[in-house]
């Protein structure tokens, strides 16, 4: 499975410890082109550490992370982003003082190829770049039904909407992989199913692969192609949602061995 021909992201035996405490212990899995892949696990299982290793925030002591065949370990976070990996954060990290459109424009790849002075006078290359960026941003905003809010400052909008804006911003980068860190954290039932729907739509219409970390099991099982379960930094199961849900180790990890 790890050597699948269309593997986009290959996480191979990564280990990370913080002053002796093992956060990740030889975790291996791979995400295929265009699939929705979920990582589940109880609190402290190492899910966030895993994300931070992929996005370049942490540097694991062992193992490798390859994306489209290129090694990511050692790259700074902005370099990882430029390789085509977008991400959202557990606590929505939008830029509250900016409008929805500005948030999305910011993420455009190659948005800053023209120099700062030519951007000021808005001629030639920078004017063309901006027109193209505005059109693309409009498209992603429509996909996530925030196009009517483009000129609103993000800080004034409700939490659920901000989460969709963050997802739209990730899309605006036109990445090959989006990392979603607990996309439905703090959401009620309706917002959760709406978000699940949005993730599916994005995956279907754009064909971008999605790697998500989530607590909400119903959501994960409903939208994922494959699921990987972590416990104490180790992979304890990997398979289709149905397979993982039946796995004795997973049940045990979630219910603390009470059964």
């Amino acid at each position: 499975m790890a050597e699948h021909a269309t593997d986009l992201l290959e996480v191979d035996g990564i280990s990370l410890s913080f002053s002796g405490v093992k956060a990740l212990d030889g975790v291996t899995f791979s995400v295929r082109e265009g699939e929705v892949f979920a990582v589940i696990g109880p609190n402290g299982a190492g899910k966030s550490s895993l994300f931070n290793c992929i996005s370049g925030v942490y540097r694991p002591q062992a193992g490798s992370v390859r994306f489209g065949g290129d090694e990511l370990i050692g790259l700074k976070p902005h370099r990882v982003a430029r390789k085509g990996i977008a991400r959202t954060f557990q606590n929505v990290e939008v830029f509250p003082a900016m409008t929805v459109q500005e948030n999305l424009l910011l993420a455009r790849d190659g948005f800053m190829k023209a120099g700062p002075l030519s951007c000021m006078v808005r001629i030639g290359r920078s004017a063309r770049e901006e027109r193209e960026a505005v059109v693309a941003v409009q498209r992603y905003a429509e996909m996530l039904r925030i196009d009517h809010l483009l000129s609103a400052p993000v800080g004034s909008l409700p939490h659920g909407t901000q989460k969709r804006i963050e997802l739209a911003r990730a899309l605006a980068m036109e990445p090959r992989l989006i990392l979603l860190d607990e996309p439905v954290a703090g959401m009620n039932h309706d917002e959760t199913s709406e978000m699940g729907e949005a993730i599916r739509t994005v995956n279907r219409e754009v064909g971008v692969a999605i790697l998500l970390v989530e607590h909400d099991m119903t959501m994960v099982m409903g939208i994922s192609d494959r699921v990987c379960a972590l416990d104490f930094g180790q992979r304890i199961a990997l398979g289709t949602p149905a397979e993982v849900a039946r796995d004795a180790l997973v049940v045990n990890a979630y219910l603390g061995g009470a059964l």
């Binding site: 996005s55 925030v57 700074k76 976070p77 902005h78 982003a81 430029r82 977008a86 991400r87 954060f89 990290e93 939008v94 830029f95 509250p96 003082a97 900016m98 910011l106 993420a107 790849d109 911003r169 980068m173």
Partner: peptide, 12 residues
């Protein structure tokens, strides 16, 4: 506004 989020947008 937020350095980590800026990095995630590919901003150096």
């Amino acid at each position: 506004s937020h350095q980590e989020a800026a990095l995630a947008q590919g901003i150096d």
